[in-house]
Design a protein around this nucleic acid. Structure first.
Length: 627
RNA sequence: GGCCUCGUAGCUUAACUGGAUAGAGCACUUGGUUACGGCCCAAGAGGUUAGGAGUUCGAAUCUCUUCGAGGUCACCA
């Protein structure tokens, strides 16, 4: 039984015996004592005060006395307002630590029989990955680790949005401007290669659009719009004709693409051919997607992420139709006069949602139904996690609701691991159209480069081979990015300052890696394995701090996994490294007269190192022996 | 406009989901290495938790309201 559980139960007993009031033990709040007060753990007695109808101090003292006499390891207590601070004996903490050193796999739980499918990454195959994907990948990977650590069987899968008008745009541009070039012939990473044609396409389209705006047809459209409510409003606001035109053509660009553009027409024809299975189009599509996958794989490898399975939307986008049609047969869904099929989600406090277009083709949600079913057929998972940005919050509520309408047993297990968008400093937003997107590969390169410069300056790895050194720079650079992103609550929108993310000091990944490397240096110097039979009876404040923190690791992992929140681990591991550095600065570890003390401090260091390594590992961050 | 997020030091953020004097990092000022790695340690300054009202022993957290930012309401994905 954990010490906190014991405290809860004994406190309940105390309240019952002293005040003759029943107070459930799970309602008792145990906090860590704030460092400005004496003690290590604190019972918040306010809730009991109400039930006991006494003054907070009185209640605190009474419970304190009781606990002191009933729990041997409690040495002392003090009461400040409604807070009962408890001090445990050094022997108690040494004993706690000793138990931890004996544990196999400390902090991790055995198999709990639950299966999880975790989807993450989810790229489009027409352009390279960007910063948003990095947040996604790093988050999904870490949550998978957390779930594994708490005993789940986790299957990581990717979803590839490999079809549709966007990829056709890249294909079309390559046909028109590509001159048969390939990633190999131009020495370009495949996804960047294809992405460059996507950009070229949009430029060509923009040029065509600009020219069209001068035509009489365009002016007719503009004049029609001038009578609309929006236009009237803008006129009242005093906008001149130029401003109105600008507004109109911006808003009209989608209509232009669909109704007037030559390029658009060609592209849509290509999409239709694709859907009809046209051999030439399919071949080109396979080829270009292949290039993109090659590029993605390089990025995955560099980031150290992996997938057990891949789901291509092209293979599922039609399969959901069957499920929808069955639902219609059973009157779960309804059909409008025009033939389109809908679901009424009002019982789930949502709107009505289209499931099948009037022409019988499927929409995004439809294919997600099919993918969900396919995953369940294969994995029989208890929990299905979708790592997708928060702009799709509504979509996933709808997906879950529709699955539940269909009576799918796995509907309840659907969980949208939602994360906020990334803004750039100065309030700038990442928008591909405005060219403010931070490319994933560029960013990694930049940070790794920064780690290289800083490490070379220190001169501590002069004897490393080129390969060893490069491996280290990757470890540090990628660790810095990971930590920067994962230290922030995923649900929150975050501001990403590239300059700050490459920082290696303070609240960063490399700071913790440095702490780890220092510990390894100590262990090498010590030269032998410290004995686990501890021959120390008194603890310094920092030693006690370290033991308390190390003994919290298990709880932290569970809490982080339960909330799908790696940031809890990030905060924890940083605090541990910080406490260790303080300890390191203040006390000799290897140079004490007392051999037993040397041994204990080395053992403590070793265990702190192990927890740092495990904690960082949960975030997907590696630990160097030297740096 | 309907619905959903969010607003904390100059900047980036935390607060165990209602608990103590709102913690950190960066930047800024000052000090610290004869030991085991200075990418380190210590100290200082920096806050009306966007504004207002309410709920109670107690509010950054819950309710209402005003202001501000974003997302979503596509037969896009």
């Amino acid at each position: 039984m954990s010490i906190e559980q014991l405290l809860r139960e004994k406190t309940t007993q105390a309240v019952k015996e002293i005040f003759e009031v029943e107070f459930p033990s799970d309602k008792i709040i145990i906090n860590e004592t704030r460092k400005e007060f004496d003690g290590e753990l604190t019972v918040v007695v306010f809730p009991v005060v109400k039930a006991a109808k006494k003054k907070p101090e009185e209640v605190g003292n009474a419970i304190g006395e009781y606990l002191k006499t009933h729990i041997e390891s409690i040495q002392d207590f003090n009461v400040i307002k409604g807070f009962l601070n408890l001090s445990f004996s050094d022997e108690f903490w040494i004993q706690q630590f000793s138990e931890i050193t004996q544990k196999e796999n400390y902090g991790f739980q055995p198999d709990n029989g639950k299966t999880v499918v975790l989807e993450y990454c989810g790229p489009n195959t027409n352009k390279p990955l960007h910063l948003g994907h990095i947040r996604n990948m790093v988050l999904g990977y870490s949550v998978a680790n957390l779930l594994k650590a708490t005993g789940h069987k986790v299957h990581k899968v990717n979803i590839l949005n490999d079809r549709g008008i966007a990829i056709c745009k890249s294909m079309m541009a390559w046909q028109k401007f590509g001159e048969g070039k390939t990633p190999d012939s131009t020495h370009t990473k495949g996804d960047h290669f294809v992405g460059s044609y996507y950009v070229q396409y949009n430029q060509a389209l923009e040029k065509e659009y600009q020219e069209w705006q001068q035509t009489t047809i365009a002016q007719t459209e503009f004049n029609k719009w001038l009578n609309s409510n929006t236009a009237e409003k803008l006129k009242e606001d005093g906008k001149d004709d130029a401003a109105l035109q600008k507004y109109f053509f911006k808003y009209f660009s989608n209509n232009y693409f669909n109704e007037f553009s030559e390029l658009g027409k060609e592209t849509k024809e290509m999409l239709q051919k694709w859907e009809a299975g046209d051999t030439d189009v399919r071949t080109l599509w396979e080829q270009m997607n292949g290039w993109v996958y090659d590029g993605f794989n390089q990025t995955y490898k560099r980031l150290g992420i992996d997938f057990e399975d891949e789901y291509k939307e092209s293979e599922y986008y039609e399969a959901g139709k069957v499920m929808v049609e069955e639902g219609l047969k059973e009157d779960i869904f309804y059909q409008k006069d025009d033939g389109s099929i809908w679901s009424n989600l009002e019982e789930h406090k949502l709107d009505r949602k289209l499931l099948l277009r009037k022409d019988g083709t499927s929409v995004y949600l439809t294919q997600d139904l099919a993918v969900a079913q396919a995953r369940y057929d294969k994995y029989k998972m208890d929990i299905s996690i979708y790592t997708v940005g928060d702009e799709q919050n509504y979509h996933f509520k709808a997906l879950k609701a529709v699955l539940s309408q269909l009576g799918k047993v796995y509907a309840d297990g659907v969980y949208h691991l939602s994360y906020g968008m990334i803004d750039l400093p100065g309030g700038a937003k990442m928008k591909s159209r405005e060219g403010t997107v931070v490319d994933a590969d560029d960013l990694i390169e930049e940070v790794v480069d920064k780690a290289k410069t800083a490490t070379l300056e220190s001169g501590k790895i002069d004897d490393f081979s080129t390969e060893q050194a490069q491996e280290l720079f990757e470890m540090l650079g990628v660790g810095a990015i990971r930590f920067f992103i994962l230290s922030i609550d995923p649900k929150k929108r975050m501001t990403f300052d590239p300059a700050q993310s490459v920082e290696l000091q303070g609240f960063t990944g490399p700071y913790i890696q440095y702490g780890y490397a220092r510990i390894q240096s100590i262990l090498r110097k010590y030269g032998k394995t410290p004995s686990t039979s501890i021959n120390v009876h008194k603890l310094e404040a920092e030693e006690k701090d370290l033991i308390i923190q190390v003994s919290n690791f298990e709880k932290v992992v569970q809490e982080a996994a339960q909330h799908y929140e790696p940031s809890i681990v990030a905060q924890y591991v940083y605090n541990l490294a910080k406490t260790y550095n303080k300890f390191y600065a203040e006390y000799p570890i290897l140079n004490n007269e007392d051999e037993g003390l040397n041994d204990f401090r080395t053992l403590l260091s070793k265990n702190v190192g192990e927890v740092l390594q495990k904690g960082l590992g949960l975030l997907g961050i590696q630990t160097p022996e030297r740096m």
